[in-house]
Amino acid sequence: MKWNNIILVFSVLIGLPLLFWAVGDFPRRTILKEVLSVLTLIAFTMMIGQFYLTRNKRKMFKVKSIKKLIKLHKIIGYVFIGIILLHPFFIVFPRYFESGVEPMEAFTTLITTYNSSGVVLGLIAYLLILIIGITSIFRNKLPMKYTSWRLLHGVLSIIFIIVASCHAIDLGRHTDVPMSIFIIILSGSGVILLLKTYFSKPQNNRIKP
């Protein structure tokens, strides 16, 4: 495995959002709130990063065994899907430690504000990532061939990343212009790369490092 490239990918996925978070003109809040925000941000960029850590990209990383790359993809997937699933709760959780609306009340308002397209997109994205997570855990138990599962996984991921990006850009506290452009470029090229593999059968060596 060519670690240099992997490290490069990670530094983009983690470093850039951190940089935008650090230099952006956002109100600085309590450490807890900032940690939760940053965690969510990174979880999201890591999800986009999954588009780059697939077996189709093995050439890019000069991977000898696919297994290692897939293992990495799985670990990152489960960890950060977990964080993404907690994202709505992260928003209201700090209210336990300060005065104001009660966390449960805030949560109810949060998930019932259907007049906001951003909230609706977020709810859809949440369902999608939940389905992606479940279909991955129980892949072997699903009555489908690996290739059709892979297609399902890819298609769900593409829809998720588009919906979630729109949600993040619309509602995100930290999605200012640089952060938005970063998300659009990162997820856009991820989606294009994946689509390319679908439409460029048989697979050859066109994808270059």
Partner: peptide
């Protein structure tokens, strides 16, 4: 009021 970041448009405020 300085800024509103991450508003979901619920109208409570």
């Amino acid at each position: 009021i300085n800024s509103i970041d991450g508003c979901i448009g619920c109208g409570t405020c």
